[in-house]
Design a protein around this nucleic acid. Structure first.
Lengths: 365, 365
DNA sequence: GTGAAAGCGCTAACAC
DNA sequence: GTGTTAGCGCTTTCAC
């Protein structure tokens, strides 16, 4: 018969052991200072634990007076129900895991304000529904690890945000019945649910806008290996086709989302004297670096080179010059991701969702 | 005798009910598709649950063959231990709650890249130690709600990031024995642990630097009601004292962290023809807006007005002009916050920790 | 080396 | 209206 070390006396919180010294907790299983629990309230109220449980859940079975007494006691003791135990018993779970893939090569933290906003939007959408948000970073090369919080029962489902290249791993997860939704591009043969903006339309919008403003040779800068970015490039191509122009392939520049690489690319283009009078950047952040670099080399924006970004992060409007960009409806994004996940948990089949993009013309173009 | 609705047959995952329709899960307790559990493995391996438990925890008690068989089975079934149940039994918890206070007035999401980076840094520090991160947004007016994840047993402790004015509520939490650490300023009569950069020194650094570059009238812009910002302003004052100058109080401009307000303030200053030849901004983001506004009104930076920011966010280096700023050592911040929390959980008393700031001189000054 | 059984903090029949 | 009891998925003593 198991008998875990139970101090039967109401043990008055473990005495802190002194000293200001640092750390040292190592990997020991995290203990926790004593917390109030139902049995404490039951004892103090002179009723059984079940009655406390009923009282706290506002069961009509329990005597109003008892209920009041219990409620008051709970409040004054700062008691909150132990969610883990409750979940175990009820087989429910109101936590959603949000997975942020990260590139182990660049060890790049989610540094783009766009993703920050997306997280904020998710936090809003989850909070509004009384759901908790567990954030986990996962090696982008092992996206299947995203299922972990679900398998361990920590979360009811998973939202995966950020770029990636692992279509197949995600399809496998879907087959295994893991409830999850991905922020990203809609791909062929996709067995899982995505939410994302219409990147092709967005790319076309940006490029067409540059043509309208008189641009002749529009550079595309971004890493098309990321599905979303690839689609923006497709939009760029499509705009050319629509305008009856040839999309010069040398104008499509593959660049990762790293400030140094972007600066280097722009400088190399200038050195090569490649002719261009506009740049469509795969993100606003990239546009900022591009504009900065161009100016440092004596090119004026927009007079010499028109620039359009993507995302419409808050900073875009306050940059000098204010950046023209393609807005992705972020707050809608969070809503749809959460909605999609809940629908799956309710047993529905969920298809991909495309968000409308919108061109915001400012002075950089 | 309770008998929760247990489908005794190994029920083959609930059949999805069809249709692409959206949402509808409402507030119903989130169910979860069936997951593998220990008893499944035990049955398949022909051993008892206890043996499986021991095998999976690499107990030396269990026969190597049995252990291998169980391990293989677990792997092939994608089994992961149910952490909730494990925690309940072990009375442990490896989740840390990270609380982001938010201003319900502006309904401002954590929009500053600095906080994003701080979250990233926390995520790194936690991940490195095998801790999970539960993110919760809390009304800045009710910081005592930050204790909730601890009281519910969801987290072993709490890290509170972001600005606030509720010293007293935090002291109360400390008295109640809630394990938590705050990112922020060290205040008098403080009963809780903080980690923060040395804002006074930082403010002094920035201001002294502007003096060195020849500035005569240095504006301070920020909201000193936030303790951290107040201390930066103190640093600004102290730099004046050190230089034997008078800090003209009209040069200290109280401005909230809202782009429109910042722009309006700058424009109002220009209209009033208040004389100033430098601005020390309480954040890089603010510096960007200030520079943009100044330029839009024909002032050159740094020729007419020198500007220094605070934080050294990634964008600062890539702005046009690159922004001089006071760097806060972010990755250290995450480490110290987590370390402080773990130390508390280990029963140690933890004092406030100050991080060294550093001036990064670039072209805006 | 393995299994039976008790219990982590909670909920919900069921009995009174 | 309230208490008793079993059990959510796990770990661990104790017995064999």
């Amino acid at each position: 018969m198991a008998r875990p070390p139970k101090t039967s006396t109401p043990s008055p919180a473990p005495t802190p052991s002194s000293a200001t010294g640092k750390g040292g907790a190592g990997t020991a299983p995290l203990a926790r200072p004593s917390r109030v629990q139902m049995s404490d309230i039951a004892r103090l109220a002179g009723v059984s634990v079940s009655t406390v449980s009923r009282a706290l859940s506002d069961s009509s079975l329990v005597n109003p007076e008892t209920r009041a007494r219990v409620a008051e006691l709970a409040r004054s003791l700062n008691y909150s129900i132990n969610i883990g135990a409750q979940n175990l018993r009820l087989k429910q779970n109101r936590t959603v895991a949000v997975i942020v893939p990260y590139d182990p090569a660049t060890r790049q933290h989610l540094s783009d304000p766009f993703f920050l906003s997306l997280l904020g939007s998710l936090a809003d959408a989850l909070t509004d529904r009384g759901l908790d948000m567990l954030i986990t970073r996962v090696d982008a090369g092992h996206l299947d690890e995203a299922a972990r919080p679900w398998r361990t029962g920590q979360a009811a489902g998973v939202v995966l945000v950020g770029q990636w290249h692992h279509h197949d791993q995600l399809n496998a997860m879907a087959v295994q019945g893991v409830p999850f939704v991905v922020w990203g591009a809609q791909l062929p043969q996709q067995l899982y649910a995505t939410v994302g903006s219409d990147n092709i339309a967005g790319g076309e919008l940006a490029t067409a806008h540059l043509f309208e403003r008189g641009a002749q040779r529009v550079l595309f800068m971004g890493d098309p290996d990321l599905p979303e970015i690839g689609q923006r490039q497709q939009g760029w191509e499509r705009a050319h086709a629509r305008a009856g122009r040839m999309a010069d392939p040398t104008l499509a520049r593959k660049v990762p989302f790293v400030a140094e690489a972007i600066r280097a690319e722009v400088e190399s283009l200038l050195r090569q004297k490649l002719a261009f009078d506009a740049v469509f950047c795969a993100s606003d952040l990239m546009a900022m670096t591009v504009i900065g670099t161009l100016r440092r080399h004596g090119r004026r924006v927009p007079e010499d080179v028109r620039v359009v970004g993507y995302d419409d992060i808050a900073l875009a409007a306050n940059f000098e010059p204010p950046i023209s960009t393609v807005r992705q409806p972020i707050s809608e994004a969070g809503e749809l991701l959460v909605e999609g996940l809940l629908a799956q948990l309710a047993g529905e089949r969920v298809g991909p969702r495309l968000l409308r993009t919108e061109l915001v013309a400012r002075q950089s173009s």
